[in-house]
Design a protein around this nucleic acid. Structure first.
Length: 281
DNA sequence: ACCACTACCTGAAGGC
DNA sequence: TGCCTTCAGGTAGTGG
């Protein structure tokens, strides 16, 4: 499910329910997601107040007044639902869904983490140690960081024969892109996804940053994309999926100005990839 | 170091 | 309706 725009949408949806609030109770309903929860996960969280909710790549990070930070990755199917408490809601809260694995309670709400496939994970670490956390330490720059520009890509791509789309999926190269937005960005940049990264010229390389930023900005503004059942924490779906130009559009006409090509679906590094063979070179 | 491939887990959707 | 196969936005680990 979630790439950078969806994670950012979730972050914004959770912010009002969590930031400044104290976690009165946390319950885990199984010992692991993708990985085991860290020791005493629930008790370390209970009683802590959330100071800030941030995003790094596809990670959510909640800084707590206990000097620890909660790290959350949504995997493919992770999502948060916000419910008012029984008292606030009157009718009482609905029973938990089958894949509701973690329940966070504040004075005002219940925030439920569901993850059918359990590719998500959570961890706790001292806030001061966040930069050293193994899952965060290897992340590349944020797409909106100044450093994410042509000279950086030139360095990252040098000598690499791997397709540029696969490189953009590498979170160590740039943090937050996933299968959809990598395809979309390369279509906008008119670069073939399977083109070896090291073989891309400077002019084309210069088109990558603006293309990536444009598609991410538009997607965030649209509240992310809704495929299957993804929904923001407030329950409203994103609608950027209607703005996909290539993803899931095999056989359809290419939308790039002046191009008469048709979008093709291929498989690259085991992932579905969409591009226009005519205008993406 | 690099790169291709597999595994992880469940549900939805399509073909028959 | 039901069974079977394929596919899915994620990362991590293995082995060449």
């Amino acid at each position: 499910m979630p790439e950078l725009p969806e994670v950012e949408t979730v972050r914004r949806g959770l912010e009002p329910a969590l930031v400044g609030e104290r976690l009165s109770k946390v319950t885990i309903r199984r010992p692991d997601l993708r990985f085991a929860f860290p020791p005493r996960f629930a008790s370390r969280l209970a009683g802590a107040r959330i100071l800030e909710l941030r995003r790094r790549g596809k990670f959510l990070i909640a800084d707590l007044d206990s000097r620890e930070s909660l790290i959350v990755h949504l995997g493919m199917t992770g999502r948060f639902l916000i419910e008012g408490t029984p008292a606030a809601e009157g009718s009482g809260s609905a029973s938990l869904a089958k894949h509701a694995h973690v329940v966070f309670e504040t004075d005002d709400a219940r925030i439920i983490f569901e993850d059918a496939r359990r590719f998500g994970f959570m961890d706790l670490t001292l806030t001061a140690r966040l930069p050293d956390h193994p899952r965060l330490a290897s992340l590349g720059p944020e797409p909106f960081d100044d450093i994410f520009a042509e000279p950086y890509l030139a360095k990252a791509f040098t000598g690499r024969r791997q397709g540029v789309k696969t490189m953009l999926l590498d979170q160590a190269v740039v943090a937050g892109l996933g299968n959809i937005y990598a395809s979309e960005a390369l279509h906008r940049a008119r670069i073939a996804p399977e083109k070896p990264a090291g073989a891309i010229g400077k002019a084309a390389r210069s088109r990558i940053t603006p293309a990536v930023r444009a598609v991410l900005e538009e997607a965030i503004a649209a509240g992310g994309s809704t495929l299957r059942d993804f929904a923001a924490a407030n329950g409203s779906p994103g609608y950027f999926q209607h703005s996909f130009r290539v993803y899931g559009r095999g056989g359809e006409p290419c939308g790039n100005r002046g191009c008469r090509g048709r979008i093709r679906r291929t498989v690259q590094a085991g992932r579905a990839t969409y591009h226009c063979p005519l205008c993406q070179k």
